[in-house]
Amino acid sequence: MKSIILKTASNYLLPLLLLFAVFILLRGHYKPGGGFVGGLIASIAFVLHSFANGLQNTRKLLRYPPGAFIPVGLAISLLSGLAPMLIGKPFMSGEWLSVQVPIIGLIGTPLFFDIGVFFVVIGVTLTILFTISESIL
């Protein structure tokens, strides 16, 4: 699938889609969206890029193997749950800063939890797809 149009388009589409994915992720608490959808959109962006430019280039672009996203995401989610325990609250109780940010709203532990989900979903999806497309049995 080495179409020039697709290749050119995907180079522009990748940052745009990623931006959109982050947008969807961050607004999830107030409007439709969230970590799952955001992660899936980001994965689609990378898959599209790999179709156009070849898997090796996408891997290069990512710099880290996709599997590395999984532990990072899991750690973020778990830490966001553990954080309230530092101030004596039970595991996974929500805590918020009082600063209001546009789109995101209040910044709090659920947001970080969602970011963790985002990374896990990217990691899982890309690991599965890249592994399958790479291996020739």
């Binding site: 608490h29 969206g33 995401g73 899991l74 989610s77 749950g81 929500g94 939890f113 969602d114 979903v121």
Partner: peptide, 24 residues
């Protein structure tokens, strides 16, 4: 309680966050 307006998302990441953690 959870300072979010998308109820589905609030359930996933806050009310039932533990389930989601297990799910991921």
């Amino acid at each position: 309680l959870a300072k979010g307006k998308n109820v589905v998302n609030v359930m996933l990441v806050d009310f039932r966050g533990f389930d989601t953690l297990v799910e991921i």
